[in-house]
Simulated scan of single mutants.
Amino acid sequence: MKKILFAFALSCIGFISTNAQSLYNSNSYFGSSSSTSISSTNSSVRYQQGYTRKDGTYVNGHMKTRSNNTNHDNFSTIGNSNPYTGSTGSVAKDYSVGAYNYGSGKTIHTGSRGGQYYINGNGNKTYVPKRRTRY
Rank of each mutant, 00 (worst) to 15 (best):
D73C: 00
A92R: 05
G86T: 06
F75M: 02
S81N: 10
T70S: 13
F75T: 08
N68W: 02
G89Y: 03
Y95D: 13
N69S: 10
D94C: 02
N82V: 08
A92N: 13
T88E: 09
N68T: 07
S96K: 13
T88V: 10
I78P: 05
S90D: 05
S96P: 14
N80V: 08
P83S: 10
K93T: 06
V97A: 15
S90I: 02
S76N: 15
D94I: 00
N71T: 03
S96C: 14
T70C: 03
Y84C: 10
F75A: 00
T88N: 11
T88K: 09
V91F: 05
T85K: 12
G86Q: 03
F75K: 02
K93D: 14
D94Y: 10
S90Q: 12
T85V: 07
K93N: 15
S90G: 14
D94N: 15
G86L: 01
P83D: 08
T77K: 11
N82E: 05
N74G: 09
T85G: 12
H72D: 11
F75E: 04
T88D: 01
Y95V: 13
V91G: 06
K93C: 07
D73N: 10
D73F: 01
H72F: 06
P83W: 03
H72W: 03
T88G: 07
S76C: 11
T85Q: 09
S67I: 05
Y95H: 14
N69L: 01
N80G: 05
D94E: 14
G86K: 09
T88M: 03
N80L: 03
S67Y: 14
G86N: 01
N80Q: 00
T77Y: 11
S90W: 10
G86C: 06
Y95C: 11
N82R: 01
K93P: 15
Y95S: 13
S76P: 00
I78E: 09
N68C: 08
K93H: 15
D73P: 02
H72I: 00
D73Y: 09
H72K: 12
N74I: 08
V97S: 15
G79Q: 07
N71I: 04
P83L: 07
N74Q: 11
Y95R: 09
H72V: 03
N69C: 01
S67D: 13
T85P: 09
A92P: 13
V97H: 11
V91D: 04
G89E: 07
G79T: 00
H72A: 10
T77M: 11
T70G: 07
H72S: 12
S90L: 08
G79N: 04
G79P: 02
D94Q: 14
S76V: 08
D94S: 12
T77E: 12
V91L: 09
N82S: 05
V97E: 15
N82I: 02
S81H: 02
S81M: 09
N69T: 09
S67T: 12
D73M: 00
I78Y: 04
T70F: 02
S90V: 04
G86P: 04
N82F: 05
Y95N: 14
G86Y: 03
Y84K: 06
N71F: 01
S90C: 07
I78M: 10
N68Q: 06
Y84P: 01
T77D: 12
